[in-house]
């Protein structure tokens, strides 16, 4: 039998491929399926948070800031609980990053607040002496792109079955629902309502005025995203 295989290299190759591929499938797929399940307490992003996430990517925050806390005491002391794979279930793409010029931001929402981000993004060195981070002043003027974020939400809901408008279990046993508006106008209104909650804790008058006029500056969306990282 094996002699026959050796004489027919093409079929032999196909069989070898099939055997190795099958072994790979039964090894890898179940483990992926298990570990990519969202952990309890993980929520999909709201429209404003997702807008902020795109601001984060657009400005290249992930080139200097990682979002992956490794299981070492030195890291968990500084950043909080180590990351587990299920926490990235709604991250498309995930923003693990590979270089920490700045600190990790995986759980920055636990230990920084809206007003801190507002001061920091305007002039990082004013709150962190010696900080290398540049000033991101344009975030206070540019209007954030809520429409694209809403499109992304609709897409992931439809194709990846991301559970918007469904009750999700939280760590304390309660249920929470992340709303997704049925129409674009609804999504804009919801994002604006969230933005108003954020600006209530901000000081910049221009930003407050913009939100009052119904425009959401990028900084507000970014802060909404950063506050959601927990």
């Amino acid at each position: 039998m094996f002699h026959w295989l050796e004489k027919h290299p093409f079929f032999f190759s196909v069989l070898v491929f099939a055997v190795v591929a099958f072994a790979g499938l039964i090894e890898i797929v179940p483990s992926f399926a298990q570990q990519s399940r969202p952990v309890i307490g993980t929520k999909p992003y709201t429209t404003l948070q997702l807008t902020g996430r795109q601001v984060y990517i657009k400005n290249g925050c992930n080139t200097c800031h990682s979002q992956l806390i490794r299981p070492f005491k030195s890291e968990t002391d500084r950043y909080g609980h180590y990351s587990v794979s299920g926490e990235y279930a709604y991250d498309r793409p995930f923003l693990w990053g590979s270089k920490r010029t700045g600190p990790d931001l995986m759980r920055v929402g636990n230990y920084r607040t809206t007003d801190w981000h507002e001061n920091h993004m305007k002039d990082p060195a004013s709150v962190v002496p010696g900080s290398l981070m540049p000033k991101y002043t344009w975030l206070y003027k540019n209007v954030a792109d809520v429409d694209t974020a809403y499109a992304e939400q609709l897409t992931v809901q439809r194709f990846f079955d991301v559970p918007y408008n469904k009750p999700l279990p939280m760590k304390d046993g309660s249920k929470e629902t992340v709303k997704l508006a049925a129409t674009l106008a609804g999504a804009r209104a919801e994002a604006l309502a969230d933005a108003k909650l954020i600006t209530a804790n901000m000081k910049d008058q221009d930003v407050k005025d913009m939100v009052k006029e119904g425009k959401i500056p990028e900084i507000v969306a970014l802060i909404a995203y950063l506050n959601s990282l927990k």
Partner: peptide, 10 residues
């Protein structure tokens, strides 16, 4: 009056 301070669980 100044702003929000987070709790420091760590």
């Amino acid at each position: 009056v100044i702003g929000t301070m987070p709790k420091l669980d760590k």
